[in-house]
Design a protein around this nucleic acid. Structure first.
Lengths: 109, 109
DNA sequence: ACTATTCATCGTAATATTGCAATGAAACAA
DNA sequence: TTGTTTCATTGCAATATTACGATGAATAGT
C-alpha cells in the first residue's frame, strides 16, 4: 500500500532507514559531496552544478534540511547552505554501528 | 514523474544511492540485522521475527539479493539466506568513502 | 515605484514503492 | 498419488517519490 509499517520496527531500525532513504537519491548525494568540496557555503550554484531544475533542487535540499544534515541561512536574495558537522558525525555513528556488524560464523551459503 | 535521472550523475553517486535505497526500509535493515545475529542461515523464520506477511518479506529479500548482499540456497522445501561477507565489505567501502568526508573549513552557517 | 534575482511553495503528471491475498512451483511425507 | 510445507510470483490498491512549470515572497539595485 506504499505505506511503511514503522511501528513494528525498533527506533534504531527506523532511524537507519530514514537516514539511508535520504542518501537513496543520487541528487542528494551529489549535493552533499559538493557542499563538502566547496569549503565555503553554496546556494543556487547547486542548480548549475547538478543538472536539475531549481524547484527539484530546492525539494532535495528540504529533505536534507529536514534530516538536519545541512543548514541554510539567508544572505540577501540568495540562501547559503552548508553541512552541519555535528549532525553529520552523529548520523555517521548511527550508520557505522549498522555497517560494522560482523559475522560470528563463516556463514553457510 | 517519479523517475530518477540517473544519467546526469556519476557512477559512484548512483552506486551510493542504490545501496542506500536498499537500506532505506526498516524491514530490510531488520532482515540484515537478524541474518548477522543468527550465525547460521535463516529462512522463513524471518516472517515470524519481523511482523510482515510472507510475500512482503520475500520481496524485500529479493531486493537484498539483487544488490548482492545476501545469498540464498535451497534446502529441501525451505530456502536458507545469509549475508555475503565479501559483498558486505565491498559495499561498506563504497559507503565509508562517502561518509568519511570531512570539512576542510569550519563551515560558515 | 519598478525591475531583476534568488529561492520556496503549489499543483500536477509520471513513475516507484509497499503490503498483502491469491496462486504457483518444488520438495517431502504418507 | 495425495496432502503438506515452504517460498516465489502475480495482481492489485494505497501511498510515496521525482521532476518541473507556474507562481509567490523577499531582497537588492535603479
Amino acid at each position: 500500500m506504499g505505506l511503511t509499517k514503522t511501528e513494528i520496527f525498533t527506533e534504531q531500525q527506523n532511524r537507519i532507514a530514514m537516514i539511508s532513504k535520504v542518501f537513496g537519491h543520487p541528487a542528494r548525494v551529489a549535493i552533499l559531496q559538493h557542499l563538502f568540496k566547496i569549503d565555503s557555503c553554496v546556494c543556487g550554484d547547486l542548480v548549475n552544478v547538478i543538472g536539475l531544475a531549481q524547484p527539484t533542487i530546492s525539494q532535495h535540499l528540504k529533505e536534507l534540511k529536514l534530516l538536519g544534515l545541512i543548514k541554510g541561512n539567508v544572505e540577501g536574495t540568495s540562501v547559503c547552505y552548508c553541512i552541519d558537522p555535528e549532525a553529520w558525525t552523529d548520523m555517521k555513528a548511527v550508520l557505522l554501528e549498522f555497517l560494522d556488524q560482523d559475522l560470528s560464523e563463516p556463514g553457510c551459503c
